[in-house]
């Protein structure tokens, strides 16, 4: 609210009311994003205005009273569960994420796999992305192929989900909500790329989370609301990271939706030492290499290098493109990985 606007109000009281209204409108727009709390205040207190006296900030506490808080006392908390769910289902407006994988550069370092598994709390044999040894025919050369979820524009997995637990967002990401999933595994059956995994047992750091839950109860019990709130934010389910993982639900590659929101590239893309991955926004016609950070035109990259997509005959229209393994930088250890009959088993 500007100074001019302020002049229109006759009394401070009216001004307060107006700012309150203004604030409520803002709340409506940001959908009740709970963002802050100070050491003295209960988490869930909402900021009203970033202006105010120097070093102070105006905010609304849980009792809907306008208060001022010293800036030094402010702690920014992670958005709460409801907000995470809302923005996670909505996605980033105006974006169309796209990944390009240059097969000529992959040497099976598996750094992408490791980074992904560490970010999403997965065991070594639980994959969101896996590097596969591929060979198309006996006379053609074998090559390595990183295979994340293809984030199809015509996703077969999403079509069969009975409860809208897996869904496509406006920015193209196919996400999974493990607070919703009933564990029927129809999506696994429907996915032609074997991109999905299931938590057959308690996920990797289940015990750690159980411990945090207990700690949370303890803190609440002793009235340490601030510490409790902080811990809660840590253990709340983040749909864009799919952590904590849950027993009996599906998990899959998310294009690191949580990182994209912060302007960072996915975990796997950033971790690759060999410049295999490009990631970017199709709307901007640009992708950036995760290793060299070089940004190139997507259309030119695909045109010049004969980019292609996996199993195009299925009409799934993936958002992941591959550049053929031409002039590979690394030799494959074996001459052929196919058995005598010429088929992958």
């Amino acid at each position: 609210m500007s100074e001019d606007q302020k002049k229109k109000f006759t009394s401070d009281e009216e001004y307060q009311k107006a700012t309150r209204r203004d604030f409520m409108k803002k709340l409506g727009i940001i959908g009740g994003a709970a963002v802050a709390g100070s050491a003295a205040l209960v988490a869930g207190m909402k900021f009203e205005d970033k202006k105010g006296k120097d070093g102070y900030i105006r905010a609304v506490n849980d009792d809907n009273e306008l208060i001022t808080v010293p800036k030094s006392e402010i702690k920014y908390l992670k958005p709460d569960f409801t907000e995470l769910q809302r923005r996670g289902r909505e996605g980033l407006k105006g974006r169309k994420w796209v990944m390009v994988i240059n097969l000529a550069k992959c040497r099976n370092a598996r750094k992408c796999v490791e980074a992904c598994q560490s970010a999403h709390h997965l065991r070594p044999y639980e994959y969101h992305i896996n590097t596969l040894k591929m060979q198309d025919g006996k006379e053609t050369a074998p090559y390595y192929m990183p295979k994340p979820c293809q984030h199809c524009d015509n996703p077969p997995c999403t079509a069969v989900c009975p409860v809208n637990a897996t869904f496509k967002r406006q920015d193209g990401i196919v996400l999974i909500d493990n607070e919703r999933c009933i564990g029927c595994r129809f999506c696994i059956a429907a996915c032609p790329y074997s991109a999905r995994m299931f938590h057959w047992e308690q996920p990797k750091n289940h015990e750690e989370y159980m411990h945090h839950e207990e700690e949370y109860e303890e803190l609440m019990h002793h009235g340490k609301i601030n510490e409790a709130a902080e811990l809660k934010a840590k253990i709340d389910y983040d749909i864009e990271l799919n952590v904590p993982q849950k027993k009996g639900t599906i998990s899959k590659c998310l294009f690191s939706a949580d990182r994209l929101r912060e302007g960072k590239m996915p975990y796997c893309v950033s971790a690759c030492p060999n410049g295999v991955f490009y990631f970017g926004d199709e709307n901007e016609d640009a992708v950036t290499n995760g290793t060299t950070k070089e940004t190139v035109r997507l259309s030119k990259l695909l045109r010049d290098n004969a980019g292609y997509r996996l199993l195009p005959e299925l009409g799934t229209q993936p958002r992941v493109y591959y550049l053929p393994p031409k002039n590979r930088l690394f030799d494959f250890p074996e001459e052929s990985i196919l058995p005598e009959d010429g088929h992958h088993s």
Partner: peptide
């Protein structure tokens, strides 16, 4: 000359 893109700068 570069153009600003979401993850970097394209020449």
């Amino acid at each position: 000359l570069f153009a600003k893109r979401y993850f970097g700068e394209a020449a």
